[in-house]
Write a protein that binds this DNA or RNA. Structure first.
Lengths: 152, 152
DNA sequence: AATTATGTAACATATAAAGTTACATGAGAC
DNA sequence: GTCTCATGTAACTTTATATGTTACATAATT
């Protein structure tokens, strides 16, 4: 597939989890995200390792939030995914012998680095709690739908 | 392959072309870039359409620079490639009905947009002539090698 | 007319995200 | 203790896209 949407996906999951008590099975979360339970487990694994969520097996098991939402930023979540590349473009050759290519790389690297740094800074400025606040504003009087409720 | 290296590649080509008189065949440029002539034609097509380079068929034909290098920025070259996506990440769903996902998208979009804008601004600040200047500094007393000269 | 070079379509390859299947493991229900 | 539910994970499939390659048409020079 084209662009990496794991960050978008996992944030969607976390924000849903913050709206109602857990736990949530991978099955439930996958249904809400219109994807596969294994995909959910895959993207949640990194967050569990860092203690942002916890998981329990067996009856009554599933995923639970395990962090202070005001302490975790989008950048933290990004890091939990393994810090995948942010930019779609890169240099043709990383350490070229050709001086011409070195000049090109130097110019591009600076621009790329600046853009990556800004993006990381912006992600670091937004906490999960802030996302939740924004969501409440969008909801207004409406009530969030219960993602755990499902038709057989 | 992983990251888009067309911008890096085409800049490399242009900077080589600026170092010696043309024209250059796709074959010559491909050899210098360690790639295929068709790849060269493909990435040069957009630049030709915008008048940055010209191409001639037949004997003595090939590619020539056709612009003032101090007037063309890296951003212009990027645009000539068709402005491919800059970021490797994106939203899972562009226009979601889910308010939760809308909140996530809004936060990510702002960060993504800021980073893209900065990258474009940086690319717009560097002209091909500036790249040439930087190259001359790197070369020092050395002479650039003639990419047209090749062993049979 | 032969040669050289671009222009382009069509096909092949490589990589990575996303989706799927299969099965092992652990925890509660009975 | 056994059954059921849920995660953990490996392996495989699918899809998208950049890149590489082959083939051949077209145009310009010799």
């Amino acid at each position: 597939m084209r662009r990496d949407s794991r960050l978008s996906g996992v944030l969607h999951v976390l924000l849903h989890m913050a709206q109602q008590p857990g736990p949530f099975t991978s099955e439930t979360l996958a249904r809400a995200m219109d994807t596969n339970p294994v995909v959910i487990r895959r993207i949640m694994a990194g967050l569990r390792d860092l203690g942002y969520v916890s998981s329990e097996k067996g009856h009554g098991g599933g995923w639970m939030l395990a962090c202070d939402l005001s302490k975790v930023t989008l950048r933290d979540v990004y890091a939990a995914l393994g810090s995948p590349s942010l930019l779609a473009m890169g240099n043709r050759t990383e350490a070229p012998g050709c001086l011409v290519e070195q000049a090109v790389n130097a110019a591009l690297d600076q621009a790329f680095h600046d853009a990556e740094a800004l993006l990381l800074r912006r992600l670091g400025e937004v906490t999960l709690a802030m996302l939740g606040e924004d969501l409440r504003k969008r909801l207004g009087p409406r009530k969030i739908h219960d993602i755990s409720a499902h038709r057989a």
